[in-house]
Amino acid sequence: MALTPQDVNRIAHLARLELSAAEQAQMLDQLNGFFGIVEQMRAVDTRGVEPLSTPLSALHPVQLRLRDDLVTEGNDRPANQKSAPAVEGGLFLVPRVIE
């Protein structure tokens, strides 16, 4: 099942990546090369197998650890915004968003 140039455009848009025509062409070849080795995986019968999303659950049941509802963080705005591209009055600035 090969990807089409339209697939590459759609995915690049979803991922917010601008790709030049040359990059798109190369990406198409490389992705199709990769999905070639994926086919063997799709063929395996995995019926009844529980997906493993957190590795240690292969060892024992893993459950989410919960934090007490306490405020532990203060105002670190200056340090937190040190590497911000555009800030004014403490707000991060972006091109106008139309709703």
Binding site: E88, L91, L93, V94, P95, R96, V97, E99
Partner: peptide, 13 residues
Amino acid sequence: SLHEDYANQTGID
């Protein structure tokens, strides 16, 4: 998103 204060820009809080 605060659209008021900044010309052609949106402020994010």
